[in-house]
Computed example of a mutant assay.
Amino acid sequence: MLNINIHKKLKNYSLEISFQVDNEIIVLFGPSGAGKTTILNCIAGITKPDSGIIQLNHTTLYETGKKPLPIQKRNLGYLFQDYALFPHMTVCKNVTYGMVDKTFTDDLIRTVGIGHLLDSYPKQISGGEKQRVALVRALATQPKALLLDEPFSALDKDTRIDCQDELLRLHKLWKIPVIMVTHDYEEAEKLGDRILHLNNGRIMED
């Protein structure tokens, strides 16, 4: 269970957000500048809210007036839009960076089908392959929740569909809270157990 109840003053509006995520995929949907990525960054610890509380299971990540839990102790997986793979490391070293359990990681590599890429460098593989590598790297840390910031937006249609299907399959295997940002409503409907519509820092009622 991920619980988010935060306030943050931004340039053009205030972010006022409150929602909970069980072991499901929640999609944050809305126009650019609505506050979607800021929410992910607040949960991850990259950005600090002005007030509120963020809790993951029984751990408080952020609470007004208290010292925030450091990023590295939050036990979150974060898949960035550009995948943020280490260019100087092979796929194998990227995936095992932060790895918790080798057997679990080997299972992930086999499940996602990137075993043949392990000796390659990021510049040598396709966008879809990079996306799969980044997803395995995020899950190899055995996170308690997964944050996805438009992870499929740069992919061609067929690869995007394949990667969407991969995410759904993995989520069935490892049920954890997932929050995903997308601008694609068809993608939101396909992947989201719930869709939260954001505009100017607030969740809009359907």
Score class of each variant (00 low, 15 high):
E129P: 07
I109V: 15
K67N: 11
H171W: 08
P31G: 13
L118M: 15
K157G: 02
D101M: 07
S32P: 04
L2Q: 02
K144V: 09
M89L: 15
K67S: 09
G30N: 01
L56E: 02
K144G: 11
L147Y: 02
I203G: 01
P68Y: 07
N41A: 12
E187V: 08
L108F: 00
L10F: 10
R202H: 10
A140I: 07
T59V: 13
W174I: 14
D193A: 11
N199V: 12
K48P: 02
D206A: 10
K102R: 14
K11T: 13
Q20G: 05
Y13N: 13
G127F: 03
L15S: 04
H171A: 08
L147V: 08
N5D: 12
Q131Y: 07
L173H: 10
G127P: 00
D119I: 12
A145D: 01
T159S: 10
P87L: 08
Q55Y: 03
A145L: 00
Q131I: 08
I6Q: 06
D193Q: 14
P177E: 07
L139A: 03
I26E: 01
T37E: 09
K157T: 11
P87M: 09
K48Q: 14
N3E: 09
I54Y: 01
G127W: 02
V178D: 03
R132I: 04
L28I: 10
L198H: 03
I17M: 07
D206M: 11
Q131V: 06
I17S: 01
P177L: 04
R194Y: 05
S126F: 06
I114S: 03
G127D: 05
I17A: 07
L170Y: 06
T47D: 13
G113R: 07
N23Q: 15
P68G: 10
A154Y: 02
A154T: 06
